[in-house]
């Protein structure tokens, strides 16, 4: 579900993008499925349609969604793949975090244990039958 915190420091349009990405990965929006119209989203979330438009435009640019003239936007075929590829690029963030934890004195074992636990936890709850 898309949840927007308007007063978070993260801009709304970023939150929207992340939310849609998550929904695609989870499967709420299957590939080829139609995304909510600007109108619906705007009314539901009470968000400026231009902002929504911006999010959609960005997603389109990345190839995650595509628009069919006149009938709204659809999740692109292969969107999940794109997302997964992009996510992989973020492993660098993990590296930075690990380094910091090490600096702070957290042991490598704890770090690894936590990471494995988190991944397992995800697999159990949400990704169980999607492997």
């Amino acid at each position: 579900m898309l949840l927007i915190d308007k007063f978070s420091s993260k801009p709304v349009y970023e939150q929207l993008i992340e939310g849609i990405e998550r929904d695609i990965l989870i499967g709420t929006f299957a590939e080829g499925a139609q995304l909510p119209s600007l109108r619906e989203l705007s009314a539901m979330l009470s968000v400026n349609p231009n902002t929504i438009q911006k999010s959609y435009a960005e997603l389109m640019r990345r190839g995650i969604i595509q628009s069919a003239h006149g009938s709204g936007c659809y999740v692109a075929v292969g969107a999940k793949d794109i997302l997964r590829r992009e996510a992989a690029g973020r492993l660098g963030e993990l590296t930075a975090l690990v380094r910091e934890l090490c600096l702070a004195g957290v042991s490598a074992q704890d770090i690894v244990a936590t990471a494995v636990e988190a991944a397992n936890g995800y697999n159990e709850h949400e990704g169980g039958n999607r492997q």
Partner: peptide, 26 residues
């Protein structure tokens, strides 16, 4: 918002409150 979507209405809002504008404007 509906008007923006349906009719491409242009709106200008002036305010003293940044908070308010932050929420509504693009």
């Amino acid at each position: 918002y509906r008007d923006v979507i349906e009719r491409n209405t242009t709106t200008i809002i002036t305010s003293h409150s940044l908070h308010e504008l932050e929420d509504t404007c693009d």
